[in-house]
Design a protein around this nucleic acid. Structure first.
Lengths: 226, 226
DNA sequence: GACCCAAAAGGTGTTGACACTTTGCTGGCG
DNA sequence: CGCCAGCAAAGTGTCAACACCTTTTGGGTC
């Protein structure tokens, strides 16, 4: 809104201009800097970031693929609207996908990877004991944990889908709904159960635990939003 | 390859130029007209279709979102490579996603929709009895059936994912691997089981049956490709 | 004052041209 | 003969300008 706030693209990551634009916009949307449902004016945004409309349109196309913006022909693009219903839908997706990821991970993860996951969990446990307030860090830790399971499935389709698309949508919901789950302790315990299932190389159990875990989160949400 | 084969875009669907290009290329890739792993030269393709490179790049970006092409910075885009391993991965995704779709559909489908599905199945049954050879039509029917389940879930995320992205990849595999399943009869029976679960409004059973159905297809594939 | 039509302003879709990167070839050197 | 430097050709990334669509605004009429 502030006209003087020309956002300079950090030339940090050395990809193409479109890549940097994509990351910048993605972050801006996830962090809520670009409000939900707000219309995107290509000329204005291009001017703000000091790039041409062509590059901007390419970046927007990628955002559309992530479901972060919606575009209608001849009408322009808008930042996606976050309804409670859609959030529920996403958690239903997660239940199915991450459940399958856990099942596959129980077979495909190396013992070293599982051990590393155990170390991470131990660290989380200490953080929960010590500082009850570090909610943000716990959130990050939760995402880390789920990430490792997904990657552990070794299924590239699954990894791309969850880590490159759904992940950002989920982060957007977390940031903007400002949800600090009251159940970090329970979540931690469920993570431990899952670790046990992985150690036992039990795909059936791993999927069951993960699905129950995601379902619990969803139920918690449904209650908080109702 | 044939230089004289200038492909004229049918102005059939009235969307934007990029939309039509996207559909045309999508079809060309799925049908195998553009071979797997082949490099895409932007100037040549643009000239062939009589459009500018800008529009073509926009269409390619969408194809990339469907996982039909892979692009590397400064190196260009290639049609995706179809390995047996990736096909397995896709069926693992389908097992999770369509299983969840069936679960949700058992709760969300209207009775009218379920009845319509029953009519469709009856039709399929007759086709199988009468003409053993109409494989293509059966394939189309199979896709129709699965489509209706997915749409019946009423989960927009799920619908978009399966019907707009994965569907085309799957069709590409089917066309190019030229797979005529020897198990259309068994598949039909499994479809009937699923219909019963839907009629009984039993989510648990619906998911179980659908997952088993997809898993059977996968096992059948693994055997055929080994 | 309300409604409708028309013109203009703003915005998106599309294009051709320019700059930089990668690739393949050519020629000289060890 | 093989290898590396350097150049040329092709291709991708980016840009500014043009064409069409949508929306709004202004004027005229009922």
């Amino acid at each position: 809104m502030n006209d003087s706030s020309l956002i300079a693209l950090e030339p940090s990551t050395g990809g193409t201009l479109t890549d940097r634009l994509f990351e910048a916009l993605q972050q801006a949307i996830v962090e809520g800097e670009m409000p939900q449902g707000s219309k995107i004016s290509e000329p204005e945004l291009a001017r703000r970031h000091g790039v041409s409309r062509g590059s901007l349109r390419a970046a927007i196309a990628r955002l559309e693929a992530c479901k972060l913006v919606e575009r209608k022909p001849n009408l322009g693009a808008r930042v996606v609207e976050l309804s409670a219903a859609q959030l529920i839908e996403i958690f239903q997706l997660r239940e199915a996908l991450e459940g399958m990821a856990a099942r596959l991970a129980a077979q495909a993860m190396t013992t070293a990877e599982i051990d590393a996951l155990g170390a991470l969990l131990e660290q989380h446990g200490q953080q929960i004991e010590q500082e009850q307030g570090q909610v943000y860090f716990q959130k990050q830790g939760d995402l880390d944990f789920h990430f490792r399971i997904v990657k552990g499935s070794k299924n590239r389709q699954l990894i791309a889908l969850l880590c490159e698309d759904l992940y950002h949508l989920l982060r957007m919901y977390r940031v903007q709904f400002g949800m600090r789950s009251q159940r970090s302790r329970q979540a931690f315990d469920e993570h431990c159960y899952l670790l046990n299932a992985l150690r036992a190389r039990d795909p059936e159990m791993a999927e069951l635990v993960m699905r129950q875990h995601v379902r619990s989160s969803r139920r918690n949400l449904e209650q908080a939003l109702a």
